[in-house]
Structure formats: C-alpha cells, structure tokens
Nucleic acid binder design. Structure first.
Lengths: 201, 201
DNA sequence: GGAACACTTCGACCGCCGTCGAACTGTTTG
DNA sequence: CAAACAGTTCGACGGCGGTCGAAGTGTTCC
C-alpha cells in the first residue's frame, strides 16, 4: 500500500499531522485528481487515512499515531538512499503529533533522567493524561537518530506546549520545525542542552 | 520492497533472527528457486537482508534490528486484517533477537519500575552493554499489544538469558516462543506477574 | 439560474514486474 | 569422473494496477 510512489508522497505530506484536501495532495504528488481519488479511497479502506468533508472539499489526515510510526520505521530503512532530502528534517520535525529529530531525541533523554522536574515546571498534568484513553508513553524510534523519542499522549502534550510557547513553529507544507530564539534559550535552560547544540543545526 | 507477497513471506520467515538457505525460503514462500533468487538479490541490494555462503548454500538473515522493527510497525497496521494467523504469536515471540508479545511488554513494564533489581539479579551487566557499539535501549512498539517492549543490546541480552535458563524455548520455523514450567515460575516470581497471567495464554 | 469548482466514475491504455521453463555454473559426494 | 544438488541467468509470458481523458454528481458563490 505504501509502496506506490504517489501514495507514499501523499502519506508523507500528511506526516505533520495536519489535514489536506484531495486536490492539494494530488498536486503535490504530481498526479491528476482522478488518480488521486482512487489512491485516497484505497488508503482510507486500508485504515491508513481518515477524511472529513467540509463543504465541497474532503480533508484527509493520517488515521493515527501507528501509521506515523510505521512510516518512520520504514524511513529508517531507506535513510541511506535519501540523505539529501532528509537533511532538512534531521534537526526537528513533526512525527504526526509529537516532536522528532535530534531535538526530540535530546529532550526525551533529559526527560527520562531521574528526579527531573521539567514536566511539572512546564505545567504538564500527568494524572490528567494518564486518565485519557490513549497510552501515555510510547516510544517512537527516530529514523534519523536511531534512538527513541517520546510519542503517545505525553508526546502530543509536549509538542502542543512547545508550540503554544512559540519555542517551535511549523514550516508550511513540511514536517520541518524551526526553533525560535526564545525556544533556543528555553530549551537550553530547562533541558540543560549544551551551548553547541543548536549551532550544529 | 516489502509489498510483494513472496518477499514479505521470506522476510517474515526470517523474523526470528535465524538464517535460512535460499531453497528453504523459496519452498516456504511457495515459489520456485529462480524466482526466489531474484527476490533475494533485490532484498540484499535494498539492505534488508544479508547472506553468508557455506559450501554450496547461501544462508540469508535480516540485515539488522531496524528491519525487524519496521516489519513490526507495519504488522501493527494490518493487525485487524489478520487476526487468525497472528493469534499464535500474540503471547510470546521473537522480534529479531529480543522478546516481544504480551510477555515481552509485561516484562518491560516491570523492568521500567523504579528501584527494581531484577537486572542485577539476572546477572545482566549494564556497564558492559553500555560500552558496546550498539544502543543499549531501544523501544520497539509491539504490534499485538500496542505498547513498547525492550529492544537493543539490552533486549538481546535478556532474551539470551531467558533461553539459556530454558525459561523460553523457540518453536521450529516460527517466531513463536513457549514458556516452560520453570519459566512460568521464574517470571511470576521475579517479575511479580499475577497468577492469572499465564492462564490467559 | 449559471458558472466555477471539488470530487468521482468509467473506460482504455500501457508498462512494469512477478512468474516459470530451460539451460548454465559451481560445489559436494561417492 | 559422474551424479546430485544449490544457486543463477536468460527469455518469454501474463496480469495487475497506475495513469489519464471524458463525462457525471454535488456544492458554492455571484
């Protein structure tokens, strides 16, 4: 299902967790609307995508975090073949609804250190997240770093907070995330990242 | 690459981490030797498999843990479609070189509990593992349980120990693992698994 | 109402690729 | 050396599926 180039392009375009119209997906994948329509129907039937109609448009998005995770795992296999295209995404990107890339891995490691109080300081309410239906903590192996980053309800809550604080901003039509100056200082301070961390970006 | 049924069958057959000859893989996949030869060459070129010649035979095995991880992530997407075939593997199975399934997830959770001394009692030397080139701890999301189990160097060391102790034995030609009576008692005792855990198997 | 637009259905085309039979290379065994 | 066997190469076949043009449905907006 993911093996077809056109379908793969459409799924990759949705890897930032946002939704897009059929037309836009068709254009980005370089195929006509009819062909895209057939592909999208297959992807929905295979439970990879879901859609929601608004007016005369159909907006598609990933069916869930598992889909993003599978795509990340597959990307890891092909990472040698596509070094150029991937370079942009290595430092910080969305993986569905949470943060991935070098920054995501680094923050995860800091979070896992014992006796850290970052979560509390960020105002993340663990008990509330624990009561949600969704698993609190999932690891998602990073295809650029080959080390885990935080997914699940906690991962989504963290990324939302980073964006709310404007430490990270999303790049239009891309999974890429850029760190604002305020973000650099906040991450460096709260997560004890060394001074050289952001200069290697 | 994994989309072709014959190639998928061969890769799945190797998911237990062992190696098999081209002929055996061809037979299991239900194709002729010529066809298998072409597929195997492609899989090797794509860095999914590696091989090693012994005499007139070529023995193939997975190229690494990432491959197993990607296959597991993909299996999760299709888990609704193949409930029958998967039933056998749900409780305990190999995922390349480490333990997966309900048992793998349960043991992982016990290991992650703070202040646990199971690792030390099992004689697993963390400092030695940490110095190895391979990442110590990797999460691998379980496609049957949708929760993480331990992969990486630690996961491999644990499974090796379980097998050495004969708590788990591998089933011929399958990823399935069966728990011995000694294993049931050892796991229940050391990992504080409830009395009902093994009866639901 | 009518034009513009998003999406779908249908049908036809075409090319890629999985498949096998036949024949070939190289190794093992007696 | 001959026979058996693992694996490979070549060539031919066949079908699945991705592709688009044309035409159809439904919605929005003036």
């Amino acid at each position: 299902m993911l093996a077809d180039p056109s379908r793969a392009a459409m799924v990759l375009a949705l890897m930032d967790g946002r939704s897009r119209s059929a037309k836009k997906l068709a254009l980005d994948a370089g195929i006509t609307a009819q062909t895209a329509s057939a592909h999208l129907r297959k992807l929905v039937n295979a439970n990879l995508l879901v859609w929601q109609g608004r007016g005369r448009c159909k907006y598609f998005s990933l069916a869930g975090s598992e889909v993003a995770q599978a795509v990340e795992a597959l990307s890891e296999l092909g990472v040698k073949q596509i070094p150029a295209a991937a370079r942009d995404l290595r430092f910080a990107r969305c993986c569905y609804d949470h943060l991935a890339g070098r920054l995501g891995v680094a923050l995860t490691e800091r979070l896992l250190q014992p006796r850290n109080t970052v979560l509390r300081e960020l105002g993340i309410d663990l008990t509330a997240l624990e009561s949600s239906r969704r698993p609190l903590f999932r690891c998602c192996t990073d295809w650029t770093e080959r080390r885990p980053h935080v997914a699940g309800a906690l991962g989504a809550a963290l990324l939302r907070r980073y964006k709310d604080e404007r430490w990270l901003v999303a790049v239009e039509d891309s999974r890429k995330l850029v760190v604002t100056p305020a973000g650099k200082s906040a991450f460096a301070h709260r997560f004890a990242l060394g001074p050289g961390f952001f200069t290697q970006e």
